[in-house]
Amino acid sequence: MQQHVRFERIWAAFLLAWVAAFSDAIGFLVLQQLGASFMSGNSMATGVALGRLDWPAALHSGFPIIMFFVGNMLGFLMLTLTRPWHIRSPFAIIFALEVIFLLAFLLVGSRSFQGGSVRPLDSWIFYVCTTLLTLAMGLQTATVRRARGEHISTTFVTGVLSNWANALAQYLPWLRQQLAEQSVLQVIRTPVHQASARHFFLLSGLWISYLIGAICGGVLELRLALTALVFPICILVVLIVIDVLQPFEREYF
C-alpha cells in the first residue's frame, strides 16, 4: 500500500508538470511570448530592455517577475498558515486557487481575444491576463517541491535537466566499474542501481510530461483558443479531489 501511495504521488507530480507546460504554452502563444514561469528568461529580457532604455519592453518582461513572486509567496504563506490550523488538504486549497486564476484568465482573455492573441500591450486586459497566469504558476511552484527525496519543480525544467545530467555523471562511472566486476544481472539487482533507475525515471518523467504538456497546449490552442485551458483546469480538479480524499503527505513533496 505504501509503495502504491508513493507511485500515485509521483504521477501527481507528472500531471502538474503537464498542467504547467500546457498553461505556459497558452501564455506564450496569446500573450506576446510571455514566459509565465520562466523567470530567468524574463530577468534577462528585463535587464536587456533596461540597458537599452526600452521602458515598454522592460515592463512587459519585468511585470511577470513581480506577479510570479507574489503568487509563489502566497502559496508558501498558505502552506505555512495551514500547519497550525491542522488543515487536512492544504494543497487542495492552493490548487483550487490556481483553478480560479486559470478560469478567470480564460474568461477575461476570451473577451479580448483577436487575431490569435489577447489585445496588444497597451490594453489593461493584457496585464490582467498576465497577472492571472503568472500568479497561477507561482502558486503551483510552492506546492510540489520534493518527490522520492529529490528536489523537483513542476513549473520549469532547467533544474530538472541539470539534476538529470548530474545524476548520470555520477552514475555512469559507477556503472562502468561495477560491470567490470559483476554481471549485468548482479548490477541490476544492487540497491544503488535501483535507486539510480528510480531517480532517472522521476527526472525523465517530469521532463517528458512538461514537453507533452507544451505540445498539447500548442495543438489545442490552434483549435480551441483559450477554451483549451479547460483541460489543465480539469486535471487540477482531479488533483483537488485526490488531495481531499487522500491528502498528499508532505514527506513525498
Rank of each mutant, 00 (worst) to 15 (best):
T131A: 14
A25Q: 13
T143I: 13
L226S: 07
S162C: 01
F76K: 15
V30T: 14
L203Y: 05
S23W: 01
T158Y: 01
G35L: 15
R146Q: 11
P64A: 03
V19H: 02
I212W: 01
F248R: 01
G159P: 07
H151P: 06
S61D: 11
R9K: 14
I233Q: 05
V70G: 05
I125T: 11
T130V: 15
A12M: 15
A57W: 04
A136H: 03
S123T: 05
L16H: 01
R146Y: 10
S37I: 01
F201Q: 12
V237E: 04
C234T: 15
L229K: 01
V192F: 09
R176F: 08
V230P: 02
W85E: 13
L103H: 12
E249I: 02
A12C: 14
I87V: 15
V187G: 07
F14Q: 00
E181V: 09
L74H: 01
Q114E: 12
A13N: 05
L229N: 06
L79E: 13
I233A: 07
S183W: 02
W164Y: 15
L202H: 04
I94K: 15
V219A: 09
L226F: 06
S117I: 07
L185C: 01
P191F: 05
T158C: 00
W174T: 06
L133W: 00
F14H: 02
R83I: 15
P84L: 08
T154D: 05
F22I: 04
P120L: 10
I87T: 10
P173M: 10
L211W: 07
I10L: 14
L15Q: 12
W124T: 07
F68W: 02
Y252L: 10
L245S: 05
R52G: 13
S110M: 00
L50H: 02
I26T: 05
D243C: 00
R83P: 03
L132N: 08
F68V: 04
P90Y: 09
M67L: 15
F113M: 12
N163D: 14
I26N: 10
S112N: 11
T134E: 04
N166C: 07
A13H: 08
L224V: 01
P173Y: 10
H60S: 06
L135M: 14
L206E: 02
S123P: 03
L97D: 09
L202A: 03
L79V: 11
G27H: 05
W85Q: 15
A20H: 00
G71T: 12
L211N: 06
L175I: 07
G149V: 04
T130S: 11
R88W: 03
T46F: 07
N166E: 13
L59W: 10
I212G: 00
I100K: 07
S204T: 13
L139W: 04
A195H: 10
L175K: 12
F63W: 05
P56Q: 06
P64G: 06
I242S: 06
T141V: 13
G115S: 09
